[in-house]
Design a protein around this nucleic acid. Sequence first.
DNA 1: TGCAATTTTGCAGTCTCTGCATTCTTTGCC
DNA 2: GGCAAAGAATGCAGAGACTGCAAAATTGCA
Lengths: 208, 208
Amino acid sequence: MTEPVKGLRERKRLETHRALATTAVRLVADRGLDNVTVEDISAAAGVSPRTFFNYFASKEDAVVIANADYAERSQRTIEKFLATPKEIGTARAFVDAVKEEFAQVDENREEWLGRMKAIQENATLHSRAVAMNHETIGPTIEAIALRAGVDPKAELYPALLLATLGGAVNAALILWYQHDGRVSALELLDQAVEMLLAGLPEPGGRAH
Amino acid sequence: MTEPVKGLRERKRLETHRALATTAVRLVADRGLDNVTVEDISAAAGVSPRTFFNYFASKEDAVVIANADYAERSQRTIEKFLATPKEIGTARAFVDAVKEEFAQVDENREEWLGRMKAIQENATLHSRAVAMNHETIGPTIEAIALRAGVDPKAELYPALLLATLGGAVNAALILWYQHDGRVSALELLDQAVEMLLAGLPEPGGRAH
DNA sequence: TGCAATTTTGCAGTCTCTGCATTCTTTGCC
DNA sequence: GGCAAAGAATGCAGAGACTGCAAAATTGCA
């Protein structure tokens, strides 16, 4: 969490990214994706439309991508995961690494509520959000395989762990949003993970 | 599996949808999404570009959506799920219902290989594919909640079951594609589900 | 056959997104 | 402080996705 003071250039860059992202979330949560143009967002954020596309590859991304340094973050998450002591099981270790990032939902409650509203209401946004990590999937699967000592191409386990845990994250986010963020997202994720690692037992307590 | 003989009109419609979908998969798997225009697809399928958009809301959809009657199919899947005998656990019942649809992967091997290739190579397609079911998520969660006898708004279980099972489907598809479809997709899904319902045990056999 | 319903198509127009050349800022260095 | 190089913002032109609308072609049915 140590924030090295980068130069003015870097700071301005992050600032612009943040301004565009939060503006996009606000406008889209408010009016809906189709009633907001890139021109609107850039104007409200005080940059040219062309500049918008220097920061985001698409209008959707501005709503969905919370952090400018997304790639580095997931890289760090992977490293953290690999650095966890061996006594901790693969699944647990991975959950712990992910939770660190997930904590920002509770920390930026308002913004995330707006984001979830926009995402829930729009299929395009939803799809972009669910699979945001397209580029990181391969490396992540390999990291899991490495730590678990299996072959990522031949075994289901790594891809399955990633995909189902992603599902747990999604489920937690949806429920968090349905409760208007009045419960802790992190706690919901914890519950979801417990249920997942217990093999999704029947809620009433019956076996399956 | 009984196919009621609809009128010529309906049959032509399905035919056009199918022509557009398979053409899109073939062209995009071949050249990549960005090197194929809607005009290319419609020309190859023998309809006007405008007609393309009468069938698909976006270029991506033509690659991702395999069946014209997607909505009805998922509706039927839900009904099948709800009709399963009570002795079968919620998770098992849901898996069974889903597997019926999943079988078409093995049945249309070539097409699905092309689709997976396109999807794996393109982030936009990937996101669209992962979250294709956006509109059906709500109803499905409610169906699960109904059968399990819980409140879908208050409990994690329904959303979690859907999301993690979706993850299992994805993982199975990815591995199937990595094996060039030389193994049964249905069997992979079975394995994935077993692991999931066993609580994702450590692959080596260690506990977590 | 002839009418009504449905589908296809063309067309005009909006918006997303990209490549490229130009201008403005920041930075490191003297 | 002044200056050259690097990086960022911008404008512009253009390709292509997508929509609404009305005309034309097709199909179902009396």
